[in-house]
């Protein structure tokens, strides 16, 4: 998902009275809080996951921000502005949660700006038309919700609490997106074609948001054991497909997957093979917008430097005067 790039295996072979007590607390569904004892690997794993999630929220503002000035009405513009502002807020809740584990905001920012940190592959695709904004709300936020709801019960208290705040806000994101697509689908044939084109381009990248298949996802087992994660990538992906396909059919749209069909026996929508080579390429930095996204982030950071410096200088001056 927003942390799909987790690819370093953490071992929980650490065995000590502390580690055993820790695992017993996790098994008893107790929450772990910042000052509690925790295995180093748990801490590292969380810092990586929470910061990747935070970076995804922040970078995720860029593709949608692209359309704020060109939203087709004041109503849509106000909604999009509020949505993008929420995503900034999500990033901040998550950075705060990561900082409780002993990293600084500056370190995390530096990891993002120097290209050492990962963020969700989905934000490296371009937003070519207004229909993309509706489709992102409907599908990308829809996929995010699938992933984030179980994270509200994550074993690490500050992460779980941040997720509860995030989930409360996500529902508006998905609904405003769906409404945009619905309006296009009920509009002129050209508008409906725009919606179809957006679905064609976003569908497969959205399926990769859940991360590699369970057969080669290396972090799932320990994350599950620590109850950072509660469902596997494939389980969440299937949940998302099952929830989304009927919505698309309601809109009168076709999914760009000739193999998509309802399996009567299981009640699940079966989908075709995902192009994991493309996923890996985007993650490795070779998606359509990777460079542009990081450049935009660096530019904003650099151009805001004088404001941060001035605020700190003013605060220092006030302190000295007091």
């Amino acid at each position: 998902m927003y942390t799909q790039a987790l690819n370093t295996r953490e071992t929980t072979t650490e065995s000590s009275p502390d580690a055993d007590r820790f695992q017993a607390r996790i098994d008893a569904e107790e929450r772990i809080e910042p000052n509690d004892w925790m295995p180093d690997a748990y801490r590292r794993s969380l810092v990586r996951q929470i910061s990747q999630h935070a970076h995804s929220e922040v970078i995720g503002m860029l593709p949608e921000g692209n359309w704020i000035t060109r939203a087709p009405s004041l109503r849509r513009k106000a909604a999009l502005l509020a949505k993008v502002q929420d995503e900034g807020g999500h990033g901040l809740y998550l950075y705060s949660a990561a900082e409780t584990l002993g990293v600084t905001r500056e370190e995390l920012q530096d990891q993002l700006l120097t290209g050492r940190a990962r963020y969700s592959s989905i934000f490296n695709y371009p937003t070519l038309t207004w229909a993309d904004i509706g489709t992102i709300g409907w599908l990308v936020d829809g996929a995010a919700i699938m992933n984030q709801i179980p994270l509200c019960r994550c074993s690490y208290g500050p992460y779980a609490r941040a997720m509860i705040r995030v989930c409360r806000e996500e529902s508006f994101h998905q609904r405003q997106g769906f409404e945009i697509v619905l309006t296009l689908c009920r509009g002129t044939p050209e508008q409906k074609a725009m919606a179809q084109d957006a679905l064609n381009r976003w569908w497969w990248p959205c399926l990769t948001m859940f991360g590699p298949p369970d057969t080669d996802s290396q972090h799932s087992d320990t994350s599950m054991q620590w109850k950072i994660k509660r469902f596997t990538n494939d389980a969440l992906r299937q949940k998302f497909v099952d929830a989304t396909v009927p919505q698309g059919h309601f809109l009168g749209l076709t999914f760009p997957d000739p193999d998509l069909h309802l399996d009567e026996a299981t009640g699940h929508w079966q989908f075709g093979a995902i192009d994991w080579a493309e996923f890996r390429a985007v993650l490795a930095g070779n998606g359509p917008c990777n460079r542009e996204r990081l450049e935009a982030r660096r530019k904003a950071h650099d151009e805001g430097a004088w404001v941060r410096d001035a605020a700190l200088a003013y605060a220092a001056k006030q302190r000295n005067a007091a």
Binding site: A82, Q85, D86, G89, L92, Y93, S96, A97, E99, R105, R161, A162, R165, E169, R308, A311, L312, Y314, A315, Q318
Partner: peptide
């Protein structure tokens, strides 16, 4: 307690807290 913010001084901290934690 709802979380934390970074800010240079108390005035800016209140402003940031308003924007981050009280949008609804």
């Amino acid at each position: 307690h709802v979380g934390s913010v970074h800010a240079a001084d108390a005035t800016m901290a209140l402003q940031a807290a308003r924007d981050v934690y009280t949008r609804r």
